[in-house]
């Protein structure tokens, strides 16, 4: 199994920084610009990339990501394009940790083995399937083993409302990183969730909701996260500058630089 995520988190820890991971939807708004956006992110300081595989009916995405998926699908991009784009990014950045976020229906339709094999071959390190919770991971075709057999890590979602035994399971099976989210900050503590996961020696915890500004990153550091994922702002920039490629890339670069500069602790 690849160690790109582990190596990156370890190196950042030595530098006293947390990881800044932009989420971008593959082929949003179209193949060529999407590649340039990925490059702009990495060249501006992103420590890893979370790539979203567009789906017609995402049930867990915010409205900006939802629109980004519509744009990508509308561009006519298909499975081969998505994997070819991943492959191009991997060729350019051989050491960059890359995760792929994909809804279960895509691999379920084309076959989990087939999908996982193509993911691995195109250069993915870890897979995040948001609609396979940990209690379903070993059912059916045994999604967990299937990923492991293809040398891929399973990224899991750890919501702050999950019980202790679920967090233990998540810590056991997640590899690459863990997406920590908090559905209700008044009712649940993100910090406690991260501490519980740490106590089970989990993969790195990454905060994955409401990370838009420098202040959000500072809060994530306080709560003990080892990284943050941001999705809304980049999708917004793409949406607001659809006819202006240059401005899209400039604004994204600036945003990434600003955010990355806040990750030191």
């Amino acid at each position: 199994m690849t160690l790109r995520f582990e190596n990156t988190f370890n190196a950042l820890k030595d530098k006293k920084e947390i990881a800044f991971i932009p989420f971008i939807t593959l082929c949003d708004p179209a193949y060529n610009l999407s590649l340039k956006i990925a490059e702009a992110c990495v060249n501006s300081g992103a420590d890893a990339l979370a790539l979203g595989y567009p789906f017609s009916d995402p049930c867990a995405d915010n409205e900006y990501v939802l629109l980004s998926e519509k744009r990508a699908l509308k561009s006519g991009a298909k499975l081969n394009d998505f994997f070819s784009l991943i492959h191009e990014i991997r060729e350019t950045y051989p050491l960059l940790p890359i995760s792929l976020n994909v809804y279960a229906n895509i691999p379920a339709t084309i076959g989990f083995d087939n999908f996982f094999e193509r993911s691995q071959k195109s250069g993915i390190d870890s897979l995040f399937i948001p609609d396979i919770p940990v209690n379903m991971l070993k059912t059916g075709e045994n999604f967990y083993n299937c990923a492991v057999n293809h040398d891929l890590g399973n990224i899991l979602l750890a919501p702050a409302n999950a019980c202790d035994s679920t967090l233990n399971e998540i810590a056991k099976y997640a590899k690459g990183y863990i997406n920590v989210i908090n559905p209700d900050k008044k009712a649940f503590s993100t910090k406690m969730t991260i501490e519980t996961l740490n106590s089970y020696n989990s993969s790195a915890t990454v905060l994955a909701t409401e990370i838009e500004s420098v202040e959000d990153i500072k809060m994530a550091i306080k709560e003990g996260a080892l990284g943050v994922i941001t999705s809304v702002k980049i999708a917004k920039i793409i949406k607001d500058n659809l006819n202006n490629e240059e401005k899209t890339l400039q604004e994204i670069s600036k945003y990434i630089k600003d955010m990355k500069s806040a990750t030191a602790f």
């Binding site: 049930c59 948001p130 609609d131 919770p133 209690n135 899991l156 919501p159 998540i170």
Partner: peptide, 23 residues
């Protein structure tokens, strides 16, 4: 894990984001 069997043969299950599992 669920108490009742969530499957009908190979069909069914609980394929939702982890956040919904407690509910």
């Amino acid at each position: 894990m669920t108490v009742l069997n969530p499957f009908f043969g190979k069909y069914g299950g609980q394929f939702v984001p982890e956040i919904l599992v407690p509910a």
